[in-house]
Design a protein around this nucleic acid. Structure first.
Lengths: 138, 138
DNA sequence: TTGAAATTGAAAATCAATTTCAATAATTGT
DNA sequence: ACAATTATTGAAATTGATTTTCAATTTCAA
């Protein structure tokens, strides 16, 4: 998915394409790591120096609504965003460099069914995240 | 694990046992749901009305350090705490009433090994959470 | 019982996130 | 191209959560 397509999607949802949004979109889109709003702000200002932090928050909110980005939960904090995976995916995070990757192929059916049996719960969703070292960092 | 034992563990780690801490400990210990600092504050003041919110934050911090409680991450927020499970466990959360349960029996080895092969990552930890409806709520 | 040291709550400070608002910029229809 | 409409902007003010500071109090070991 390219920058243009993100901007197009924003446009298709009644948003206008502006320099501020372009800067935020290009920054988040091009990052292999999850970025906090302030990190996005600092990086995106290299592209558009008049950018305000408030606009970063607002743009991230819109991008999240459109499922173009998603929040990343970590032991240290949960304010960071990464461009979203497609469909149902799980996260793989490098504890060293912060790189985020997605993987699918989760065959959790047997596990969830056994838990449903054991606990009486009706399971609707699951979150799975793996933490480790990426190829470069290990 | 009983209240006394939590207080004993605090004491063993150089802390003093006070009315404020007793109120916080008893509140968090007895809750089937994850509680935010403010929720702990409101509930614990029923036991010790002079309690201050700052002390709640400080006590929760100590209890987390001793692994007696743990933070619960949810889509809506990540500020809530629940008494910790023993050993490596996973969370099962009721989306209706907020009840938290633990389960183990995670057989994720095959999955993580396959991901290591596929991605080149060296996986060190994993987080698994299931969301659904508990027996009463479904 | 006493005295040192930890703990307390209130107030102030910090930090993140949201709201308000007048000025500006992007689109639409002409 | 142009004006009119409407969304978007950044700054400032606001809110809300968490942390720090500090003098008074409480715990506990001797």
């Amino acid at each position: 998915m390219t920058d243009t397509s993100w901007l197009n999607q924003l446009q298709d949802n009644g948003c206008r394409v502006t320099s501020a949004r372009r800067a935020v979109v290009e920054t988040v889109q091009g990052s292999p790591r999850a970025l906090t709003p302030v990190e996005v702000f600092d990086l995106a200002r290299q592209r558009y120096s008049a950018l305000g932090l408030v606009t970063v928050y607002r743009t991230l909110e819109k991008l999240e609504e459109l499922h173009l980005i998603q929040r990343v939960h970590q032991p240290h904090g949960c304010q960071a965003f990464i461009s979203a995976g497609h469909g149902h995916q799980h996260l793989l995070l490098c504890k060293q460099c912060g790189q985020v990757e997605f993987f699918d192929g989760d065959d959790l059916k047997p596990l969830t069914e056994s838990i449903e049996q054991r606990t009486g719960y009706q399971i609707q969703e699951h979150w799975l995240q793996l933490f480790g070292l990426c190829e470069k960092c290990k």
